[in-house]
Write a protein that binds this DNA or RNA. Structure first.
Length: 102
DNA sequence: TCTCTGACTTCTA
DNA sequence: ATAGAAGCCAGAG
């Protein structure tokens, strides 16, 4: 639709970029909020927000914190899903050195 | 307009 | 390794 860009459209575009980057993560690998945010050009909190809103359509569980830990609300579920993909974990934290995705 | 909050990160002690 | 503080981005009241 020919229509002047608005702030809301821009935000939606950023969300798409986040989802695209998350979908691009191969199975058995994980990435971090900060890494994705830097690739896209937004802050890590913006990535987390995008996933919390519409992460249901993407492998959000392949996104973990910078230190390998996971978000509280989904921590148990995420650990289960990652373990199912063969992601090595250590005391509740993902072994980023082994599965981190550039 | 201001303030609070959140699936975050990084620095310093 | 743990803890506290500052920074950053966007939505809700």
């Amino acid at each position: 639709m020919a229509r002047p860009p608005s702030a809301r459209d821009f935000a939606q575009d950023v969300d798409e970029a986040v989802f695209d980057a998350v979908e691009d993560i191969p199975p058995g690998r994980v990435s971090t909020y900060g890494a994705i945010g830097r690739l896209i050009g937004v802050g890590p909190r913006r990535v987390a927000r995008a996933l919390s809103q519409g992460g249901g359509a993407v492998p959000w569980y392949r996104v973990v914190r910078a230190d390998g830990s996971m978000a509280e609300p989904v921590r148990a579920r995420q650990a289960e899903l990652l373990a199912a993909e063969g992601v090595p974990m250590r005391n509740g934290r993902v072994d980023l050195a082994a599965v981190v995705w550039p």
